[in-house]
Amino acid sequence: MPDTHSHEEDRSEEGSVGLPDLGDSIDAMTFEQILEMDDDEDEREFSRSIVFGFFEQAEQTFKKMDDALEERDLATLSSLGHFLKGSSATLGLTKVKDSCEKIQHYGQLKDEAGTTDEPDEDKCLERIKDTLVAVKEEYAEVEKVLKKFYA
């Protein structure tokens, strides 16, 4: 991990034109499409506002998910999962999007892929709890990469 880290630093120091090494958490093509919308490649005003807007949204959503989990409110968890799925997909944050989708499905009392029913509420809540831990980690990772890019 430290190696990759220094590599990233090298990159961002060297290339003002270059795109960040986004790793496999971010879909390069989707994210580049957003970067292309920036009028000024140095300022990156638009994409910056989007990305930081997303950070705010994600943190609020995670907070709401924690609360809903506390209250065992599966329907709310599902709709929160779907909500964050939309914006993370828009930014190409593949891993976060996939996890959100899982939460959406678990919340509907279904399996991970949303194809089979899973009537056991406890099991679904347990799975959401695990996925929520995972998605927060995945989020922290992309947040770090993106904050560095916009630093």
């Binding site: 638009f46 807007g53 949204q57 997909a89």
Partner: peptide, 15 residues
């Protein structure tokens, strides 16, 4: 409804 997505779509359309 998702403001992040909304902004991106609108910008894309403007472009």
């Amino acid at each position: 409804d998702n403001l992040v997505t909304q902004k991106v779509v609108v910008m894309l359309l403007k472009k």
